[in-house]
């Protein structure tokens, strides 16, 4: 076992994983430096989500190592990984995944409340982040009354409010329209840069990836130099059909 370099927040080596036999990751190694915004790109099914699950400790890879701040994550028990996720990581999913029973500020303060922070402090921090993300005016509303863009911004506020070391964002703008998408991404990246939070951003969108400091392209569960698939010509299928029939 080789100790990882010190300046990497997350360091993963030759990750292999398959879901019930269908392969997802085939030997991915990568390193995430402190305070950078790293984009993991690739088409659907290229293993981005599985990679993020492995890096954030939600999933233990079948082979390979994951280190966080020189601590091995892949050997941790479920309880420790849970605690690591709660205290050090933030997670933004494609859909907001809010708790429908709680109102906006309670949703944003949930990670802090789960850590045992006092009600007053958690509310103050959550309200600050909601103001910064321009949704302070709906702090008392329930999620079902809000627009999808606003809900996703609550999810971003929830990830930021816990002041994590790393935020994992798995296609955070997949369900949004262009204006909402730009807003969410701009706030996420600027907040991360100003607070020195590392962001691992999985996306299939080249525009989104251009906001990142560095890009790691994936294809079929492997790291490649660039994702440039050969263009599919329109007539290919027709020609084959006419030949075979």
């Amino acid at each position: 076992m080789v100790a990882p370099p010190d300046n990497d927040v997350i360091w993963a080596r030759s990750l292999h994983h398959s879901h019930n036999g269908s392969p997802a990751l085939g030997g991915i190694s990568l390193e995430v430096r402190d305070g950078e915004i790293l984009a993991v790109t690739g088409p659907r099914g290229s293993g981005k989500t599985t990679l993020l699950h492995c890096l954030s400790g939600q999933l233990v890879p079948q082979q390979g190592e994951v280190w966080f701040n020189s601590v091995p994550v892949h050997t941790m028990g479920p309880r420790l990984r849970e605690r690591l996720r709660r205290d050090r990581f933030g997670w933004i999913a494609p859909d907001p995944q809010l708790v429908p029973e709680l109102n906006t500020w309670e949703n944003a303060a949930l990670p802090l409340l789960l850590r045992g922070t006092s009600h007053r402090v958690a509310k103050k921090v959550a309200m600050e982040w909601l103001e910064r993300l321009d949704i302070g005016m709906c702090a008392k509303k329930r999620p079902h009354t809000l627009l999808q863009g606003q809900r996703q911004r609550i999810a971003v506020a929830r990830a930021l409010a816990g002041s994590p070391t790393v935020i994992f964002a798995d296609e955070p703008t997949a369900t949004l329209q262009r204006t909402d998408r730009n807003h969410v991404l701009r706030t996420l990246t600027s907040a991360a840069r100003s607070h020195g939070i590392t962001v691992v951003l999985a996306t299939h969108d080249v525009e989104v990836a251009s906001l990142a400091d560095r890009t790691v392209p994936l294809l079929d569960g492997r790291r490649v130099a660039t994702v440039a698939l050969p263009a599919v010509s329109d007539t290919e299928g027709r020609a084959a059909c006419s030949l075979s029939v």
Binding site: R79, E82, W91, Q97, L114
Partner: peptide, 15 residues
């Protein structure tokens, strides 16, 4: 669904 979301946030199962 809610339990999945909470576990993803790192909520302890004991909570």
């Amino acid at each position: 669904h809610l339990v999945q979301t909470l576990l993803r946030l790192g909520a302890p199962a004991s909570a």
